[in-house]
C-alpha cells in the first residue's frame, strides 16, 4: 500500500498549473513513468502532485513552423512515433524515441517528462542536443537544451516553472543521421551508452548519452567528422566521456562503448567501408 494522502491536483489550464506549483514541495507529474517509480521508491516525496494530463489540449501537439518544428511537452513518445512530420523532418528524434521502453511506456511517457527527469540516459536528449533544440518554459521563454541541463535530475528552472515544449530546426533532406543505443538487452532497457549523430556536407553533430553527468556534445568529434576522420572522431568521443561505474556497467566499458557506438553509427549511415555519400573519405 502506498503512503496515502499526498494530494493530486489536476489543473485545467497552464496558468492554474503554474499557480499550484508555486507552493513549495509540489511537483508536476505528466505520464508518471518516472514519477510513479521514484514515488514508490520514496526518492521523490512531494507534498502534492500537480497532474498535467488535463493540459494535453494545450500542450500535446506537433507543429510545423516554416523550417522549425515544435513539440508540446505533453506529447507522448507514441504520438511522436506516429507522426509523419516527425519521421520525415526529424528522423533522428524518431529513431531515438523508438528505443524508449515498450509500447505501454511510450503511450504514457512524454517528451516533457524525459527532459524533466534530466537523466543523462534519457533517450530523447542526445537527439535534442544534436538538433540544437530549445526548450520552451512557461510558453514564453526559451533556453538551449544544454544550458537547461545542470546535472542528473537538475534543471536550470525556477520553482513553478513548467516545460511547455521543445523546438528545433527540421533536418535537411540530404543529411543522414542515426541513434545508437546500448542496453543490457535489445529492447525495454535503459541506455548504458548512446550516441546521436547527424552528418551533412560541412556539418556534423555528435551527442553522447549516459556517459557523463548530462548528455554531452563532442565538438572535437564533430570537427573530425567534418574533416573526414572517423577514427579520430571515435577517439574524441572516448576522450570526452566522463562515465560512472554502476550496477549496469563499468566506467571503462562505457567509455569504450562511446567510441564504438559512434563507429557503429557511422557504418550504419555510410556503409561498412565508411564511404561517405557526402564527399571525402571519412577514414
Amino acid at each position: 500500500m502506498l503512503q496515502a494522502d499526498v494530494p493530486v491536483y489536476t489543473p485545467a489550464t497552464l496558468a492554474e498549473a503554474r499557480q499550484l506549483l508555486q507552493e513549495p514541495g509540489t511537483r508536476p507529474v505528466a505520464g508518471g513513468t518516472d514519477a510513479m517509480v521514484r514515488f514508490k521508491d520514496g526518492v521523490w516525496r512531494p507534498t502534492a502532485w500537480v497532474n498535467l494530463l488535463r493540459l494535453r489540449g494545450e500542450l500535446a501537439y506537433i507543429r510545423e513552423d516554416g523550417d522549425w518544428l515544435e513539440v508540446g511537452a505533453l506529447t507522448t513518445f507514441s504520438e511522436l512515433l506516429a507522426s509523419r512530420v516527425v519521421r520525415e523532418r526529424a528522423p533522428l528524434l524518431a529513431k531515438a524515441v523508438r528505443t524508449v521502453g515498450g509500447p505501454a511506456i511510450r503511450n504514457m511517457g512524454t517528451i516533457g517528462g524525459n527532459i524533466g527527469t534530466a537523466s543523462p540516459a534519457g533517450d530523447s536528449l542526445p537527439a535534442l542536443y544534436a538538433l540544437d533544440a530549445e526548450v520552451l518554459v512557461n510558453g514564453v521563454t526559451t533556453i538551449g537544451i544544454a544550458e537547461l541541463m545542470l546535472g542528473p535530475g537538475r534543471l536550470k528552472l525556477q520553482a513553478g516553472d513548467l516545460i511547455t515544449g521543445v523546438r528545433f530546426r527540421a533536418q535537411a533532406p540530404d543529411e543522414v543521421c542515426t541513434f545508437e543505443k546500448l542496453g543490457l538487452r535489445a529492447a525495454h532497457a535503459i541506455s548504458l551508452a548512446s550516441v546521436a549523430v547527424r552528418l551533412a556536407p560541412g556539418m556534423a553533430r555528435v551527442a553522447l548519452g549516459a556517459v557523463a553527468p548530462t548528455v554531452i556534445r563532442v565538438p572535437d568529434a564533430e570537427a573530425a567528422l567534418v574533416a573526414g576522420h572517423a577514427a579520430a572522431a571515435a577517439a574524441a568521443a572516448q576522450e570526452a566521456a566522463r562515465p560512472i561505474s554502476d550496477v549496469r556497467a563499468s566506467a571503462e566499458y562505457r567509455r569504450a562503448m562511446a567510441g564504438n557506438l559512434l563507429l557503429r553509427g557511422l557504418m550504419r549511415m555510410l556503409g561498412p567501408n565508411l564511404v561517405s555519400p557526402i564527399g571525402g573519405d571519412p577514414r
Binding site: G32, W49, N51, L53, S78, M108
Partner: peptide, 26 residues
C-alpha cells in the same frame, strides 16, 4: 510494480498502459 515487466498491462482510453504506474487521480 515498476513498469518493467508488463504484467499489469491494461488499456486506458484505448491504449496499453502499465497500471502499476498510473496514479488513480490520473
Amino acid at each position: 510494480g515498476k513498469g518493467e515487466c508488463g504484467g499489469c498491462t491494461v488499456l486506458m482510453n484505448g491504449q496499453t498502459v502499465n497500471a502499476c504506474l498510473v496514479m488513480a487521480a490520473q
